[in-house]
Amino acid sequence: MAVTTDSRTSRGVTGPVLVGGAFLLSTGVNLLFKVGELLFTDGDPHRPQGPIDSIVSISVVGVAGLALALAIALPLRADPGRARIGAVVLGALAVVTAPFFWSGAPAAFGAAAAWTAGLSKGEKPLTGVARGFGIVGFVVAVLILIAVFVGALAGVFTGG
């Protein structure tokens, strides 16, 4: 009698929730803070790097990052060999785009790397380098979320 085991992740959230949540908690929340700045402060909204410029840049870069992350993750995650490549590429993109943390794009890349590496609920985790990049992507996503919230709250309390 042969016994097979399938070590799928049973805790956590599903991949789409992970990626969508990272996007909403980074890009979405940052946009809400900028809209709040626009509505509830008397600063010039048209100043350079003011709320209007910020809303446009956050929206464009954040949505482009999410679209690219999904364009890479969705076709590659079904095949473990290709998923390994996707996890490495997405994890690397999460690290490389970290300076653009304000957009939320690195969080989307990082969450997609974790999903592609099988680190979300119901997925079979990959091993080796792909798993490492998935973990790095997840860590980058969490750090980006922290940076967005701290930056937004600092802006609220310091008036800028």
Rank of each mutant, 00 (worst) to 15 (best):
F138G: 08
V89F: 03
V140N: 04
L39S: 12
G20R: 09
M1T: 09
G21I: 08
A141E: 02
G43K: 07
D6T: 12
V136H: 05
V61Q: 06
V95L: 11
A130L: 01
A114V: 09
G159H: 04
A108G: 07
G134W: 11
A130Y: 03
G20W: 02
A105D: 05
A117G: 14
G86R: 10
V89Q: 06
K124L: 10
F33E: 03
V29K: 01
A98I: 11
L31T: 01
G128Q: 10
P16I: 06
A87Y: 13
A114K: 03
R131I: 05
L90E: 04
L70V: 12
A67E: 01
F109M: 04
G110Q: 05
A94W: 04
A64L: 15
S57T: 15
A71F: 04
L153N: 05
F133T: 03
F133A: 09
D42A: 14
F40N: 12
L70D: 07
R47F: 05
V148F: 04
G86V: 08
G132H: 00
V3C: 02
L153G: 12
G122P: 11
K124I: 12
T97R: 01
G28A: 02
D6E: 10
P45C: 06
A71M: 09
P99A: 07
V142C: 03
R77T: 10
A154C: 00
S10V: 13
D6A: 11
F138K: 06
A73M: 04
L153T: 00
G91F: 11
L18V: 07
R77L: 06
G43M: 07
H46Q: 14
F23G: 07
A111L: 11
A108M: 09
V139E: 00
H46M: 13
V35Y: 14
A83N: 12
P99S: 11
L39H: 12
I52P: 10
G159I: 05
A147H: 04
G160V: 09
V35L: 15
L70A: 15
T41L: 01
F33D: 00
G15Y: 01
A108R: 05
R82E: 02
A117W: 14
G159R: 01
A152Y: 01
D53K: 11
T14K: 09
S57I: 15
G118P: 06
L38T: 09
A78M: 11
L93Q: 06
A147I: 00
G12N: 08
I58A: 08
L153Y: 05
L70H: 07
D44M: 07
K121G: 06
L38E: 00
I55F: 08
V139I: 15
S7I: 05
G12L: 10
G132Q: 10
G134A: 10
T4H: 13
I146P: 01
R131T: 04
V148L: 05
R77M: 08
L32A: 12
R131L: 08
M1F: 02
A114N: 07
S10N: 09
L90C: 04
V13M: 12
F149E: 03
L24S: 08
A117S: 14
P51F: 15
W115L: 02
G62D: 14
S10G: 13
L145F: 02
L126E: 14
E123M: 14
S103N: 08
G122M: 10
I85V: 15
R11D: 12
G15S: 08
T116D: 05
S59D: 07
V61H: 03
L76Q: 03
G20F: 08
A113P: 10
E37Q: 15
T5P: 00
A152L: 00
